[in-house]
Computed example of a mutant assay.
Amino acid sequence: MSPATGAATLSARRSSRFVAWVRAWRAGLVPYDEVADEIAAGEEHLVADAPGAWTDIPLRDALSALSKLSPDEIRLVLPAPGDPRGLPGPGAFAGAALLAGEAVVARDLGVIPEVRNHTSGSGVTFETVLWRVYPLPADLPPAGLTEPGAAEAEADLATALAEATAALTRLDVAQWRPELAGALAALRRPDSGIDLPPGFDPRARRLFARASVLDRVLALAEHVAPGGAVNGYEAQQRDAALRPLTVACRRALVAACNAPLAP
């Protein structure tokens, strides 16, 4: 399995974990001491350009900048070219968020993860995650006005999945490479660790788990050969069949992570 494929298999969107756990902390549902470790999930996470800091600092230390925010002021955004939903408008943050495909909006701060690859002197490769902080305008419109709720997003995702499956079956291009079978099976396991912290209702949890698996499978699809598609036209047909599902999946993740929290 190629490194790119492995990364797509193992990595869920880091911004979704950030938003879910920070919102639960700000709602008083999880202790501050647990938040950084839950976000990092075993990786090394640093923060650049944090308010009041002159150098990169550990994620745990940077989270204090969000200690006065309410849960609803912390939002997940998953923009894509042609779909900048959730972004505050043109600027450095919007450009970086579109490039990354994910970001966090926290009142007057925007936060985006950057994955950095390193190689040790002995040839071992490893990653670190740098969360870069951007200042945002103080007069942003209320968040969530254009976001679907969890119920609507769940219905849209189910419809998009059914339509994509039917289209791919007709096109005979939904054949995964054999070496991905184990990875896909692992993603489908109930104990794959795809869950939200306390405070999210059952619908949001169900939506997040389903959308997270689909999101990672779609990421795999971008890194592998198109299976039964043997020419450019058929590859385009496959991509067209997956595009609505990709959009529905992104919106489902946003709706789940930004869902109202129980007191």
Rank of each mutant, 00 (worst) to 15 (best):
M1Q: 03
M1D: 02
M1H: 05
S2R: 10
T5V: 15
G6Y: 13
G6C: 08
A7F: 11
L10K: 07
S11C: 08
R13H: 05
R13I: 01
S16A: 15
A20L: 07
W21C: 10
V22C: 09
V22S: 07
V22F: 04
A27L: 05
G28T: 07
D33L: 08
E34H: 11
E34M: 10
E38L: 12
I39L: 07
I39T: 03
A41H: 15
G42K: 14
G42Y: 15
L46T: 12
A48T: 06
D49N: 13
G52A: 04
T55H: 09
D56Y: 03
D56F: 03
P58W: 03
L59Y: 07
R60Q: 15
D61Y: 06
S64M: 10
S64I: 12
A65I: 05
A65F: 04
S70K: 15
S70I: 12
D72I: 02
I74F: 13
V77K: 06
P81T: 03
D83W: 04
P84F: 00
P84H: 00
G86H: 01
P88I: 06
G89S: 11
G91H: 04
G91L: 03
A92F: 05
A92M: 09
A92I: 05
F93W: 01
A94E: 08
G95V: 00
G95F: 00
A96Y: 00
A96P: 00
A97G: 02
A97D: 01
A100T: 12
V105N: 02
R107N: 08
D108T: 14
I112M: 04
P113V: 06
V115N: 02
V115R: 07
N117V: 01
G121W: 00
V124K: 05
V129I: 15
L130N: 01
P135R: 12
P142L: 10
G144C: 06
L145F: 04
E147N: 05
E147W: 00
E147F: 00
A151F: 09
E152P: 03
A153W: 09
A153Q: 07
E154R: 06
A155S: 12
A155M: 09
A155V: 11
D156P: 05
L157N: 02
A158L: 15
T159E: 15
A162C: 10
E163G: 04
T165M: 12
A166G: 11
R170Q: 11
D172M: 11
V173T: 14
W176E: 13
R177W: 00
R177P: 07
R177A: 14
G182K: 05
A186T: 15
R188V: 13
R188D: 15
R189N: 10
P190R: 04
P190G: 06
D195K: 10
P197S: 05
P197M: 01
P198H: 07
G199F: 08
G199Y: 08
F200N: 00
F200D: 02
P202T: 02
L207C: 11
L207V: 12
A209V: 13
S212Q: 14
S212N: 14
V213I: 15
R216D: 04
L218T: 02
L218D: 01
A221K: 03
E222K: 12
E222T: 14
P226N: 08
N231Y: 13
Q236T: 13
Q236K: 12
Q237G: 14
D239W: 01
A252I: 14
V254T: 15
A256V: 07
P260G: 08
P260T: 12
L261K: 07
A262G: 12
P263W: 01
P263T: 12
